[in-house]
């Protein structure tokens, strides 16, 4: 049985105060994973003495357009991502990904910050956020630092978040003209589905119809979501008319296996991942063609 005290922070500074002075503090945000783990006494949950509820910190509930970034407060729920007009305008891929999460009940409580910090291999927001080169702002009593998501994630269910740090803001660099984005998810059913496999793909097709700056990030394919540089390299620099889609499909499957080794699920995932990348690229090519 867990024996802990419940702390409520209504301001960032309150949270930092507790994080600074107390040890073994677990942060509670939307709670869609943590509350289950506490209730079920999950062995995956490390021991803690304090549960710090940050879910009522209003300062962390914002979506703001800045000069170079769209900034999202870490307590923005999945529902808010879906309903927000700035997200719909600048990063509809995030809206699509958020729509595939769980159910309204989960989307109404679960937060973008929680999805990131939880760092599940199947986290639905991570592939698109990585593909969008999102950065996280971590605040501690000593100051703040910023990491790219790729730097922040360190393993399955592991991040570089320090014990006294709070994830406050997700900063997504605005994309210039010509960028395209696509998110696909395969589940075993149509709702309440954990991703069997997903793929976020962001790229730019330039005026010469050449792929530039491709970011290819599968979900549920690797121990934790990460970009696939080999596949990205194989796409970049290719003209839409010259891209050998079948070959890209083979490359992404090989790249996955190079990370994971051969697993029991590899025969399925390698084929399906090929299909997803081909499908995304085809869509981009047809969009570029109609321009």
């Amino acid at each position: 049985m867990y024996n802990y005290d419940f702390l409520t922070a209504l301001k960032i500074e309150d949270a930092l105060y507790y994080l600074d002075r107390l040890e073994k503090v677990k942060i509670l945000a939307g709670g869609t994973d943590l509350i289950v783990n506490i209730h079920k006494k999950s062995s995956r949950l490390p021991h803690f003495d304090y549960l710090l509820d940050i879910s009522n910190i209003e300062e962390l509930k914002f979506i703001a357009l800045k000069k170079q970034f769209l900034e999202i407060g870490s307590l923005i729920t999945h529902t808010q991502l879906i309903e927000d007009t700035l997200i719909a305008k600048y990063f509809p891929i995030l809206k699509f990904a958020a729509q595939t999460i769980g159910s309204p009940q989960i989307r109404n409580r679960g937060t973008i910050g929680g999805n990131i910090v939880n760092a599940s291999p199947a986290a639905d927001l991570l592939p698109p956020l990585i593909a969008l080169k999102a950065r996280v702002e971590l605040v501690s009593p000593g100051g703040k630092r910023e990491l790219t998501l790729t730097e922040f994630l360190s393993g399955p269910y592991q991040t570089k978040l320090q014990e006294n740090e709070l994830l406050t803001t997700i900063k997504i660099p605005l994309l210039n003209e010509g960028y395209l984005a696509n998110f696909q998810k395969i589940g075993r059913r149509k709702s309440l589905a954990i991703a069997r496999l997903s793929l976020a793909l962001v790229t730019r097709i330039d005026s010469e119809n050449i792929f530039q700056d491709s970011r290819i990030v599968p979900g549920s394919a690797t121990p934790y979501p990460q970009s696939f540089p080999v596949t990205e390299g194989a796409v970049n620099g290719k003209r839409t008319t010259d891209l050998n889609l079948e070959e890209i499909g083979e490359i992404i499957a090989k790249e996955m296996i190079s990370i994971t080794g051969k697993r029991w699920s590899t025969p399925y995932k390698s084929k399906a991942l090929s299909a997803l990348v081909i499908r995304a690229l085809k869509e981009f090519i047809s969009k570029a063609g109609t321009k």
Partner: peptide, 15 residues
């Protein structure tokens, strides 16, 4: 008729 059977013709199991 799950994802694996439809795509590969057979199921996959951890063992």
């Amino acid at each position: 008729l799950n994802l694996e059977r439809v795509l590969l013709g057979h199921a996959l199991s951890r063992e």
